[in-house]
């Protein structure tokens, strides 16, 4: 306990008081359930006494945090976020670090865009931007059997999901869900433009109430695919429109709302 507090940058702080603030790797965060000696007051004492009786709420620690005994250890720098427990998830809510990075580390369950780099026997090697290419079985496509192979060529773009992704093993992708249906996964169609953005921008664009996407959807008829590995594929009717969209998406990461509205109004006029 003493050694831990000496090695960390500062005295561990309660996670709930740090919401929205910047945290740095190596910091330790205390959960409300395990309030440390520094913040111990009479009120907290009673809380702790109460918590002994009732079962403690389960807390989910998301990306950027690691479990360290009964507290959280920060592994990425960024802002600490918290989500209150909803219908699903842990009873104590979810904590995670909203970080800004470009390097993708495969995570199980993530939907990503990969590029087929090699065909070897019954496996495809897919570049997903991670440290190692992912493997993709030819049987992991909708309707594929041993006799009926999917038509996938080297250089094709694949939208798929990770089923195996950990630090010790080669990541493995599939293009079907648990019930064997494609659900939009598989080879992404011809043409279009693939470009890379930061991982933070992808999350920003995929947020449920994202204004950027709503505004872009009004501009032209278009199709767009977001990979959690920072890749975006866009396709519109003409090459010119596709390029405009790609530029707007890339630029909107560092634009204010007014700047963005200005650009969108100018684009919709032309």
């Amino acid at each position: 306990m003493m050694a831990a507090s000496q090695t960390s940058a500062s005295v561990p702080r309660v996670a709930r008081t740090m919401l929205g603030q910047v945290v740095l790797p190596g910091e330790e965060l205390l959960l409300p359930e395990s309030a440390g000696p520094g913040t111990e007051g009479s009120a907290e004492q009673t809380l702790r006494l109460g918590s002994v009786v009732r079962p403690r709420a389960r807390v989910v620690c998301g990306p950027g945090l690691r479990r360290c005994g009964d507290r959280l250890l920060v592994t990425k720098c960024g802002r600490l976020r918290h989500k209150e427990p909803g219908g699903s998830g842990g009873g104590g809510g979810v904590y995670w670090v909203d970080s800004q990075q470009k390097r993708y580390v495969p995570v199980k369950g993530d939907h990503v865009i990969g590029i087929v780099t090699a065909k070897s026997g019954d496996l495809f090697k897919v570049d997903v931007g991670g440290s190692e290419p992912a493997s993709l079985s030819y049987l992991a496509f909708e309707g594929a059997t041993k006799r009926n192979r999917p038509n996938v060529q080297v250089g094709d773009l694949i939208y798929g999901q990770f089923v195996v992704a950990n630090k010790d093993m080669e990541p493995e992708m599939v293009c079907i869900d648990s019930s064997g249906r494609a659900n939009g996964m598989g080879v992404i169609g011809q043409d279009g433009l693939l470009f890379k953005v930061t991982l933070g921008l992808i999350r920003k664009l995929l947020a449920p109430e994202c204004e950027i996407i709503q505004e872009i959807g009004k501009l032209y008829p278009l199709e767009i695919v977001f990979g959690m590995n920072g890749r975006i594929w866009v396709k519109a009717r003409t090459i010119q429109q596709t390029l405009i969209l790609a530029n707007v998406l890339e630029a909107c990461e560092h634009m204010t709302t007014e700047q963005r509205k200005q650009i969108f109004s100018r684009l919709s006029e032309s």
Partner: peptide, 27 residues
């Protein structure tokens, strides 16, 4: 028994939308 569950995916945290989209009848 641990009361902290590790989860490395942003999908759970941020309720992200599905990654494929099409607008104005393109697809």
């Amino acid at each position: 028994e641990s009361f902290i569950i590790e989860e490395q995916s942003f999908m759970l945290c941020e309720d992200l939308l599905y990654g494929r989209m099409s607008f104005r009848g393109f697809n």
